[in-house]
Amino acid sequence: MSEMITATRCRCLRSKSSYGAFGEDLEALESTIGATTTYWCLKTMGKAGPDEHYVHKSLCRDGRPCYESGNEE
């Protein structure tokens, strides 16, 4: 579950959670403290992505038109 989430999350998803910027352990951290994470898109520096939909861990995934894989390099 966690690996799949990690592998499919957009590389441009950013989080201003309490512990700053973090990567792969997002789910584990959130399950500890609750849904207290805010997100932004590195392409727009905003809460909406280039497609004007909001940015969230559940949405910035493989299949969204503006998705960019973190595994491509």
């Binding site: 966690s2 690996e3 989080s15 512990y19 973090f22 990567g23 792969e24 352990d25 399950s31 390099e73």
Partner: peptide, 26 residues
């Protein structure tokens, strides 16, 4: 070691209690 565009890895303690996270990455 992070993938390009990924941010800092954070070490999360493994949980032992009733609210343990089953999705903790191996």
């Amino acid at each position: 070691q992070g993938k390009t565009g990924k941010d800092a890895p954070v070490h999360v303690p493994h949980k032992k209690d009733a609210h343990a996270n089953p999705a903790a990455p191996p």
